[in-house]
């Protein structure tokens, strides 16, 4: 009686560890299939379209609005200290360092990650993965590897587009509507935003997020129970896990990169 909760806890821990192990083994398998990308570059192209191009609209529009809100809020706060000229720095630093990589990753997890999970899960449920295996084609290499690299490569692009559009949105609000000086907006930004420190670190962050989001999405699909309930659960889990891991990882990366 007393041991029951402990046993349940133990089982849950063991199950989680097993799943973590399976996820890592799958990642190794995916990476082993890297050669497949060079043999069939078209597969990669299709996935970049699938994950990157089809996420462009939501990433671009979100970036624009986030940038505009940053411009507006930043202006009100900075104006209290008479430091409106720093608006450019504030908008650019928030976007390039944090919001670009993080929000783009969250959007991709919702838009493309869930679709990947559902696609792989359904392919499993309809025996398409087994079918490939029976045709002597490794489904991990053929199906998962191109999607993985598609996601990893598309993510930094999307994050950069998010930041760039966001800065233009902040510029539009700050300079266009609120009357901040154009020269000050750009020159302050250029003086304070460092290429290696801010832009490159932002790209590294989004690469890491690309790996994590795509990996989680693919694993959840590949590991899903081959039923409609199983696929829907995996899809939800894919988005939730990806969001949590992105935010957690962001903290770690920020501490590593920007902590003096």
């Amino acid at each position: 009686m007393l041991l029951d909760p402990i046993a349940t806890l133990g089982r849950a821990v063991l199950a989680s560890l097993t799943r973590l192990g399976r996820a890592n083994l799958l990642l190794v398998d995916i990476l082993r299939g890297t050669g497949e990308i060079f043999r069939h570059p078209r597969l990669l192209g299709e996935q970049i379209v699938n994950i990157g191009v089809l996420s462009l609209l939501i990433v671009g529009v979100s970036g624009l609005f986030v940038g505009m809100v940053l411009g507006l809020q930043g202006y009100y706060v900075l104006a209290q200290f008479g430091a409106e000229e720093s608006l450019g720095v504030m908008v650019a630093a928030s976007l390039v360092r944090e919001l670009g990589p993080v929000v783009a990753a969250l959007l991709v997890a919702g838009r493309a990650g869930s679709a990947l999970t559902a696609e792989i899960g359904l392919m499993k449920a309809t025996e398409q993965l087994s079918g490939l295996e029976m045709m002597a084609v490794d489904p991990v290499r053929r199906v998962l590897t191109p999607r993985f690299y598609g996601g990893v490569l598309a993510m930094p692009m999307l994050a950069a587009i998010f930041s760039a559009v966001g800065i233009l949105g902040g510029y539009f609000v700050g300079v266009g509507l609120l009357g901040v000086d154009t020269g000050a907006f750009w020159s302050q930004m250029q003086a304070k935003i460092d290429f290696a420190e801010d832009v490159v670190n932002g790209v590294i962050k989004s690469l890491a997020f690309g790996v994590v989001v795509t990996w989680i999405a693919l694993f959840q699909g590949y590991d899903s129970a081959p039923t409609s309930v199983g696929v829907s659960r995996s899809t939800t889990r894919s988005v939730v896990h990806a969001a949590l891991v992105v935010l957690g990882l962001d903290f770690v990366l920020t501490a590593l990169m920007f902590g003096d």
């Binding site: 462009l56 650019a92 692009m157 999307l158 950069a160 760039a164 250029q190 290429f195 801010d198 832009v199």
Partner: peptide, 17 residues
């Protein structure tokens, strides 16, 4: 498009220039 955005961040936003 991605490269243009990166270029914009590098040249127009950061101090690379």
């Amino acid at each position: 498009l991605g490269l243009v955005a990166l270029f914009f961040l590098a040249m127009k936003v950061s101090n690379l220039s």
